[in-house]
Amino acid sequence: MPYLSRKAKERIRKSEKKILTGVIISTVVGFVLTCIAVSTSYWIILKMRIPYYMNETNNYFISSHSGLWKYCLKSRNISRSKHSPKKPIQEVCYYHPMFPSKEEIAENPRTDETSLHYSRAEGAFAVITIFIMAISHIFSIYTFKEPRFMFKRLAGFLYFLAAANCFVTIEMVISSHLYEEKHLPVAYPKLAIMHYGYSFYFTCLALSIYILASITFLIYSHKRKEDKALSDEEAIENRPMKIRR
């Protein structure tokens, strides 16, 4: 880097601070989107073109939407008698049983051992993702107070780790859905039309935000020494330390 005047360094420092501030604000938005996605049950949405009768539940499947913690079913229980009145559509929501007994698993046609493992993994990775996102904000804000390059690298690494966990959560949801399609016809009826809900897309958007945030912080985390530093404080903090005995 060629020699820069103090005014030029100040302009670069202010520009860098504005960019990193914008990145932090965007990650806060991504954090809020992730919290909304994790707490809502609109990851997978199933709809039937015509009501589908299920012998296991003795009702007609209309539609369903599910998330990491809850599954909601819209159905209609229609009597086979021609003279009985048509019953209204009712929506019932169930929380995913995380640690049921073997008897409860056998009695529930919507779940089995494998789907339970998927549910537990999805919930665990979602909680870990939110935790890492919260920690990454603390370190990224601290970089404004502490100019040492290692804190920017740490913030960039935490952003990457949050994005990685977010990606695993998304893949778990997709894999769980594919498994239910093949092995759990009550949870995923034949001829059902599937599409992803806003909870899924919120998480995908948060994933993109955190990947870009990680790249940005890592780019600005290069070590500046002596006359290349943008401030006297940064030059002092980035001086090599000599350890003597």
Score class of each variant (00 low, 15 high):
residue 243 I to Q: 05
residue 96 H to C: 02
residue 237 E to C: 09
residue 213 A to N: 05
residue 224 R to N: 09
residue 88 P to Q: 02
residue 7 K to I: 11
residue 240 P to H: 11
residue 33 L to E: 13
residue 231 S to G: 06
residue 132 I to P: 04
residue 43 W to A: 01
residue 144 F to S: 02
residue 228 K to L: 14
residue 184 L to F: 09
residue 232 D to I: 04
residue 102 K to G: 05
residue 126 A to L: 07
residue 159 Y to L: 08
residue 158 L to F: 15
residue 94 Y to N: 07
residue 21 T to N: 02
residue 113 E to T: 12
residue 63 S to V: 00
residue 125 F to A: 14
residue 187 A to V: 01
residue 145 K to G: 15
residue 100 P to V: 06
residue 179 Y to A: 04
residue 236 I to Q: 15
residue 241 M to K: 15
residue 199 S to L: 03
residue 101 S to Q: 02
residue 175 S to W: 07
residue 188 Y to L: 03
residue 162 A to I: 03
residue 11 R to D: 04
residue 54 M to G: 04
residue 134 A to W: 05
residue 76 R to H: 06
residue 244 R to K: 12
residue 20 L to N: 03
residue 94 Y to W: 11
residue 104 E to V: 00
residue 134 A to F: 15
residue 13 R to V: 07
residue 147 P to I: 13
residue 193 I to E: 15
residue 226 E to H: 14
residue 207 L to F: 15
residue 159 Y to A: 11
residue 41 S to P: 09
residue 17 K to T: 15
residue 37 A to I: 01
residue 124 A to Y: 03
residue 157 F to Q: 08
residue 83 H to F: 15
residue 87 K to E: 14
residue 48 M to S: 12
residue 6 R to K: 13
residue 29 V to D: 08
residue 108 N to I: 03
residue 61 F to E: 01
residue 44 I to V: 11
residue 3 Y to S: 07
residue 90 Q to R: 10
residue 29 V to L: 15
residue 119 S to E: 11
residue 82 K to I: 13
residue 236 I to P: 02
residue 123 G to S: 13
residue 217 F to K: 03
residue 50 I to E: 11
residue 83 H to S: 14
residue 135 I to L: 15
residue 152 K to P: 01
residue 9 K to E: 01
residue 70 K to C: 06
residue 192 A to W: 03
residue 229 A to S: 14
residue 64 S to C: 08
residue 206 A to P: 06
residue 177 H to P: 00
residue 230 L to Y: 07
residue 217 F to H: 12
residue 82 K to T: 08
residue 110 R to H: 11
residue 13 R to M: 12
residue 106 A to Y: 08
residue 5 S to D: 09
residue 51 P to C: 07
residue 78 I to P: 01
residue 66 S to R: 04
residue 232 D to Y: 06
residue 23 V to P: 02
residue 106 A to F: 05
residue 132 I to T: 12
residue 160 F to W: 08
residue 30 G to H: 06
residue 87 K to N: 13
residue 70 K to E: 15
residue 16 E to R: 15
residue 22 G to M: 08
residue 57 T to S: 09
residue 157 F to D: 08
residue 156 G to R: 07
residue 100 P to C: 05
residue 86 K to S: 12
residue 72 C to Y: 04
residue 245 R to E: 14
residue 206 A to Q: 11
residue 150 M to L: 13
residue 204 C to G: 05
residue 237 E to V: 09
residue 12 I to S: 00
residue 188 Y to C: 10
residue 2 P to F: 08
residue 177 H to D: 07
residue 234 E to H: 12
residue 74 K to P: 00
residue 193 I to G: 04
residue 127 V to L: 14
residue 140 S to T: 08
residue 182 K to L: 11
residue 134 A to C: 09
residue 93 C to Y: 01
residue 26 S to W: 09
residue 221 S to K: 06
residue 172 M to T: 01
residue 119 S to L: 04
residue 227 D to Q: 12
residue 152 K to D: 01
residue 20 L to G: 01
residue 168 V to K: 00
residue 54 M to T: 05
